[in-house]
Structures are given as C-alpha cells and as structure tokens.
Design a protein around this nucleic acid. Sequence first.
DNA 1: TTGACATATTCCCATATGGGTATATATTGA
DNA 2: TCAATATATACCCATATGGGAATATGTCAA
Lengths: 118, 118
Amino acid sequence: MARAATTADVFNAVAEPRRREILDLVATDELSVSELVQRLGIPQPQVSKHLRVLREVGAVHVRSDGRQRLYRANPEALRPIHEWISGYVAALEERFGELDAVLSELKREEQGDDGQDA
Amino acid sequence: MARAATTADVFNAVAEPRRREILDLVATDELSVSELVQRLGIPQPQVSKHLRVLREVGAVHVRSDGRQRLYRANPEALRPIHEWISGYVAALEERFGELDAVLSELKREEQGDDGQDA
DNA sequence: TTGACATATTCCCATATGGGTATATATTGA
DNA sequence: TCAATATATACCCATATGGGAATATGTCAA
C-alpha cells in the first residue's frame, strides 16, 4: 500500500499547506474559485483540485450562484483534529493549571450552583 | 512534484493514524520499541520507521538505555497544529462565548489585579 | 569471540500524489 | 445558436509513500 489518500480523513486533507491556506481564506468569507485563484496566486485547476479534496472530507461547503461556486469552511469537519490535539493542550498552554481550574469551576456552576456574573 | 514528504512538517507526520497512535502511547509513558511493537501489534521495522518520521519532525525524543531505545513524546512539536486549529476552536467549542470571557478575565487578573485562589 | 537480543536500515513494489497543460462542462448574454 | 466566462476534470509525470522481507548495526552476557 502507498500513503493514505488525502481524502482519507481531515488529517491528511489539511496536511497540505495550500489547503490550510484555502480553509483559512474561506473561514471568514464565502469566496468563489476565481477569488481564491487571485488571492492564492496559483493556477485555477490546482485550486479546484484542492477544493475537491476539502469537499470530500467535508471541510468546505459549496453553493452555486450562477456560473460561480461559492465556498465556505465547515469547521465541524476539523473536530477530529481538535479532539486529538486537545490531549496535548495542557502541555502546550503555559497557564494550563489555572485554565483547568477555571473550566472545572465553570462546569460546577453550570451544574446548578448560583452564579454572579460580572 | 509529488506529495510533500511526511517529514516535511508535523502536519504531514501525524496525518498517519499509526503515528498518532504511537505519539499517544509515548505521551504518558516512556516506551521502548519492543513495547510499542507489542502494543501496536505491527512488525518492528514499521514501528522503527514511524518513529524515525516522528523523530525527524521532533515529535518524539529518544534516550538510549543499554540496547533499548526509550521514546517519549515531545508535545512542543505539535504547537503548529495547536495554533492552526485554535483559529477554529471558537466554532467547535459549545460554550466558546463564556470561555472567551473567562480567558479575558484571567488575562486581566494576570496584568495586576489581585487574585483569590480556591 | 561468539551468540542472543534490540533496533535501525535497505530493498522492492503498488499506489496516490501535486504540478502542468489541455479540455470538458455549465451558465450567461447577445 | 454562438462566444465568453467560470469551474471541473482528464492526462502525464516525477516522487515519496507504507507495507513486507531481509539484513545491518549495536549492545549485552558468557
């Protein structure tokens, strides 16, 4: 067997820097392919191919508008990455001890304690 | 050009599920290659090859102990992933609004307010 | 030195890649 | 209908892959 397909899962899909760049671009704005071509400065077929991969793993949604295709990011598809990396966040965040404490407190409050907001 | 090398960066290195599994195993315990072979149930050369990739991107550290090589994860190498995905965390966390507020407050306190610990 | 154990490396192969270029498939307007 | 625009797909190619099997390297013990 060779390497897993880029469409095998989100991890493989976003291993390609250009695809992360594309995702970041359509994270805030809904963009057409030609707008992406302009901003990325790479040939249109390449953009379309990257978008296809992102589509196949559900990382982007498409909408047709006339002859344009408008793309936007679907952050939900990134959840597996978020979940995996979150196991290492404690080691990466400087003040993780305090953060943990705060999150626990939030949870406690949510479960029925009273809460005085700021 | 073909796909970027697995050793090109952490994103490519951990795109392989087995390598994430290995990382998770050596995240808590320092393990030898043969221990990894046992737990993963795959041939030793494959484990060594995966470890090599992880080493080359700095995701694991090695230590020699006699004829054994003891591996442990180096979470610091995962920071680029953490940083990239953190741009999408707001959309992924359910209670992101409150979390944001709390983090802001933490920052405020850190900058000079008093703090009563629990 | 020799043998056993632990790990790394090498070789072979099928496979999917990303880039380049050309072309197919809409969709719009005249 | 026909030309122009927007996007997707098809082809070709060099390349690195992960798996399998064999072997090299290193370290200990006798």
